[in-house]
Design a protein around this nucleic acid. Structure first.
Length: 600
RNA sequence: GGCUCCUUAGCUCAACUGAAUAGAGCAUCUGACUACGGAUCAGAAGGUUGCAGGUUUGAAUCCUGCAGGAGUCACCA
């Protein structure tokens, strides 16, 4: 790639001219801003002090040296401390020819010998349906997996389902009390929604009990009332029975979880996400105790007088963390220590990535430290992909107050909007109903996924149900539309005899116009965009990259004739360029989990 | 209260490891050859990057203090 060549040449020139020892990667290289002439820019300020010359002088001397050594540099110019290089059009054309027909352009192949990277995401509770917060998690998890795979990793996607605990017992109890045997079949409700309904039902009755308790005993404070409410005690008893393996309880638990899984599977399928392996907490929650014992033996953990086992993290600026209760039972952290090791062993993984909300920043900081102290050298490669919350205009999403945006409802609404938009444009009337449905789904998910993924994961984002998701401007459908339009041109171009097959005869010495060059340069950036995005676990960078590419193309398309071009060599080059843009958009969108249509 | 993160145009978001005049979309206004697909394109307007200092040739970016917001500080997960 030309960037490395330039950096290399600059580093050599620095050494030769000024005896400055700079690593090629350390040379600051950026794309030239469009108001200046050139393609790449070197900032020379860092070297002026050592070179003992003015910025202009250093830039000029470096520019001449680089022009002499790098064949594809046709000229350079200097503005203040900025050295701009102009790259030969021949280089850009050669580049287009080189990737023509490569349907994996930009995507690295997985290294066969590399240890897998395990990405955990989704990790739902089984007592209620998925909402918008989960949607962000799922889309991020899927997309980051795709991104890391595109960067050459062998990625394994896993899900850890929280299928046991007091919250499930609440749903179960409410169903027993108020359900009258209602099932997904009898009610026509999706299983996860049905179970969620009883979770809400539990909460309603529970709060009534608390209120009644307080009215009956005016001296009782709220905390006590909450603990003494009979429903809660019943639920706790149920959990105890569950842990003892009570057959009836287990059977009910199986039945209701089964409903939820069926519902989740449907939602996952609609979102287009999947897993290589699913773990269940009911099978992993006892894990980690041996690790704690090992930690005691190693002396990195200690036993408190009351018998609880703790980690002292004060030297890391954190607190004491309990890992085993005094009755010997494990806590969340114990379990996560165990599953981390399990996962490492299951896959031979050396990198574990957790896609979990930022409210658990502290938990993962602690997890990483303790794994390190237990002597696992892969602890350094545990990464918490912490993402911000999705906020609604009137604040947080709270399932209790009913201010949630349900995932299934949201997708259904998006599909309806997509259908309305499409019908308005009326270009798909000849598709079969099934094809239309498929298209609307593709567009709906394109809009939703792009909307969520274009935001930097670490940031909180606002979702306004009324106006958030658009189909114009910086959106998924805009990019999908661009792709469809390009494909249409390419198809016609081929019909008119523009071959995309033979790369060697692609015209490689014509003068590109500015818009053409912008498009080629943008495509040229794709591989490094993937590297950067993967290094920072940020699908948002891919989203923004793709948008820029689509815009660059549209601008080119607007005032450059393609099929109307009379010179057949130029026409063919432009059709090839279109084909390459379409492929790049497709590959980029695929990283986001978004499909692009041939027409829309 | 301790710790962590956040604050960029009216709104939603960009700005790679510090670099040239902080960029897009939405909304508002104006325009586009007889549409190679107008879900498009071109343009106008919109900013003291929360505030105050500091470091640097250069700061939205790094440091300090303050204000506002969020998260967390469970033997819940």
């Amino acid at each position: 790639m030309i960037e490395q060549e330039l950096q290399q040449a600059v580093a050599q020139a620095l050494d030769r001219l000024y005896a400055i020892n700079a690593a090629p990667e350390s040379v600051v290289l950026q794309t030239t801003k469009k108001e200046f002439e050139g393609d790449y820019t070197i900032v020379v300020f860092p070297y002026v002090k050592q070179a003992r010359k003015s910025p202009e002088q250093v830039a000029n001397e470096l520019g001449q040296a680089v022009k002499d050594t790098v064949a594809d540099v046709t000229s350079y110019n200097v503005i203040k401390g900025f050295l701009n290089f102009v790259i030969a059009d021949e280089y850009w054309c050669r580049f287009v020819g080189g990737i023509l027909g490569n349907d994996r352009f930009g995507l690295k192949s997985p290294q066969a010998d590399a240890a897998p990277v395990v990405v955990e995401y989704s990790s739902p509770n089984t007592n209620k349906p998925l909402h918008l917060g989960h949607v962000r998690n799922n889309l991020l998890g899927w997309s980051v997996s795709q991104l890391l795979a595109a960067d050459g990793n062998n990625v394994k996607k896993v899900n850890l389902v929280n299928d046991r605990g007091i919250h499930i017992c609440k749903s179960m109890l409410a169903w027993l009390k108020y359900g009258n045997g209602e099932t997904p079949e009898s009610s026509g409700m999706k299983g996860d929604h049905l179970v969620g309904k009883y979770y809400v039902e539990f909460d309603k009755h529970y709060r009534e009990e608390v209120k009644n308790l307080q009215q009956a005993n005016p001296s009782m404070d709220e905390e006590t009332a909450k603990k003494q409410a009979p429903l809660l005690i019943e639920a706790q008893n149920m959990l105890k029975k569950w842990e003892e393996g009570d057959e009836e309880i287990r059977a009910l638990w199986h039945k209701m979880n089964g409903w939820v899984y069926a519902g989740f599977d449907e939602t996952y399928a609609k979102m287009g996400v999947s897993f290589d392996k699913v773990y269940y907490e009911s099978q992993t929650y006892m894990l980690g105790k041996e690790l704690v014992q090992k930690g005691l033996d190693m002396g990195v953990l200690y036993r408190r007088e009351d018998g609880a086992v703790c980690a002292d993290l004060t030297d890391a600026g954190l607190d004491q963390k309990v890992l085993l209760r005094k009755d010997g039972t494990s806590v969340y952290m114990t379990q996560d220590l165990g599953t981390a090791l399990l996962r490492h062993n299951d896959f031979g993984a050396n990198r574990l990535i957790y896609v979990v909300g930022n409210e658990q920043d502290y938990h993962f900081k602690v997890l990483k430290i303790i794994l390190g102290r237990l002597g696992f050298d892969w602890a350094d490669n545990v990464y918490h992909l912490s993402y911000g919350m999705v906020e609604l205009p009137n604040g947080k999403m709270k399932s209790r107050e009913g201010t949630v945006v349900d995932a299934d409802d949201l997708i259904a609404e998006m599909e309806q909007t997509a259908a309305e938009m499409s019908k308005e444009h009326g270009k798909n009337d000849d598709l079969t109903p099934a094809q239309q449905q498929e298209l609307y789904h593709m567009l709906a998910l394109g809009a939703l996924k792009y909307f969520i993924l274009k935001v930097d994961p670490s940031k909180n984002m606002l979702f306004n149900p009324a106006e958030s998701i658009d189909f114009n401007g910086n959106t998924g459908p805009f990019i999908q539309y661009t792709h469809a339009r390009i494909r249409s041109i390419v198809r016609k171009g081929e019909e008119q005899g523009c071959s995309l097959a033979n790369t060697s005869s692609v015209v490689n010495h014509l003068d590109l116009n500015d818009k053409e060059r912008e498009v080629v340069k943008k495509i040229h950036d794709f591989p490094s965009a993937i590297e950067q995005a993967a290094a920072s676990y940020s699908p948002a960078m891919i989203a923004n990259y793709t948008y820029d590419l689509a815009k660059a193309f549209n601008s080119f398309y607007q005032d450059t004739p393609i099929l109307r071009e009379e010179n057949s060599d130029i026409k063919r080059f432009r059709v090839c360029l279109c084909a390459v843009v379409a492929q790049t958009i497709k590959n980029a969108m695929n990283i986001l989990g978004i499909d692009v249509p041939e027409r829309m």
